[in-house]
Simulated assay, not measured.
Amino acid sequence: MTNDRRFADMLHHRGQRLGQGDPVAPPLVSATTYHLAGLEGAAFKYGRMAMPTWEEVEEQLAILEGAPVVGFPSGMAAISAALFATLSAGDTVILPEDGYYTTRLLADRFLAGFGVKARYVATTAMEGADFTGAAVVFLETPSNPGLDVADIAVVARRAHAAGARLIVDNTTMTALLQRPLDLGADLVVAADTKAPGGHSDVLYGHVAGRDAGVMARVAEWRKLAGVVPGAFEAWLLHRGLETLEVRLSRMCASAMVVAERLSAHPRVRAVRYPGLAGDPSYKVAQAQMSDFGFLISFELEGEAEAEAFLDRCRYLTQTTSFGGTHSAGERRARWGDAVAPGFIRLSVGVEPVEALWSALAEALDA
């Protein structure tokens, strides 16, 4: 990650356009209407179609993804756009049964009503699943919250052989740690609310892809559905992206330390982190990721023990999101995920790792 020129290119993406006295940071432009004496030559016409601040952020994300990007007001808005742009009545979509639960709710409560059938497959079974008859295969790797990993290149080849497109939810990794489009995915979706924003103060998402026709449908969906981000939210995401590489480096390094120590703790069991040499996902993760991420999952004896640990740890915020500067922990069974009552998803932040571990150890030993 430290030798990745994409991040340097992203930081300086405005440099070649700057004139004398121009602002280095992109201006926050929230105008919904623009001067239109005539339509010819107008870069912006109406706020639902495009805004200058969106476009700056989409350029940044496009550099990281290596592909055109369309921005959205949340990760779920991006997922919805990708699915509605690629599915029609009568189609079948393959979804991970152990991935982000809201994607499954979207399929069950809305796509089904439009005549789209969903089939559910575990992330670990995706590489060998039967995709016959599917129009879209939707993969989330590492899965949230279980952190299982699938070989994106293998799934892409099998999906394409079955005549299906592959959409990969890359939220847990970001484009700096994993590049699904380079591995054969047709579209990438991500919630930039997480690590790219990084400060737990903005909702944002994006879709990236290299098929111009599909991306045109994604953009059309945004315009016609009115699922548009605000200029201020785009500007906040820009601020987060400026420090993404630095934050990820620290978060990933700290997560490795914490995962190793959790694995050795007598009260902790079932630790999952793709960077551990003994993790079932390690071999594939090592091949397709540039680092192993900042999410760890583990189990304590039961619900009471997990809740007490979360209450005691002074350096954990109890929140349902991840990827922020503050380390965060959550007992995922409370949302209905198919996990043990004492299962905890831990998002490692940017705290000094020894201070963080001291707080975690004290809470475990109390």
Rank of each mutant, 00 (worst) to 15 (best):
295 L>C: 07
162 A>Q: 05
253 A>F: 09
42 A>D: 04
3 N>A: 15
142 P>Q: 06
43 A>L: 15
265 H>Y: 10
166 L>M: 05
241 L>C: 04
40 E>M: 11
215 M>I: 08
215 M>F: 05
28 L>D: 10
134 A>H: 05
363 A>I: 10
144 N>Q: 12
91 D>K: 06
310 L>D: 04
226 G>S: 07
166 L>I: 04
324 G>V: 06
197 G>P: 01
297 S>A: 14
344 I>H: 09
301 E>W: 08
90 G>I: 11
158 R>Y: 00
183 L>Y: 08
94 I>C: 14
158 R>M: 01
247 R>C: 07
149 V>F: 04
228 V>Q: 02
50 A>N: 13
190 A>H: 10
89 A>Y: 08
307 E>W: 09
34 Y>T: 04
253 A>D: 14
340 A>G: 09
70 V>A: 05
9 D>S: 14
115 G>V: 04
35 H>C: 11
23 P>E: 11
86 T>N: 09
338 A>G: 04
58 E>Y: 10
66 G>R: 07
105 L>E: 14
35 H>T: 14
323 G>R: 01
312 R>S: 06
316 L>T: 02
94 I>G: 03
125 A>F: 08
138 F>T: 01
192 D>C: 14
59 E>I: 11
314 R>E: 11
33 T>V: 12
236 L>N: 05
13 H>I: 05
325 T>P: 01
23 P>H: 09
293 G>Q: 05
210 R>S: 09
265 H>M: 06
137 V>H: 03
221 W>Y: 15
29 V>G: 05
182 D>A: 15
54 W>G: 00
74 S>F: 11
2 T>R: 14
74 S>E: 10
337 D>C: 06
241 L>I: 08
274 P>L: 08
246 V>H: 13
332 R>Q: 15
165 R>N: 03
164 A>V: 02
139 L>K: 01
272 R>I: 03
37 A>I: 07
136 V>P: 00
356 L>I: 12
159 A>R: 03
104 R>N: 15
74 S>G: 15
135 A>H: 04
192 D>G: 08
198 G>A: 02
221 W>R: 02
228 V>H: 02
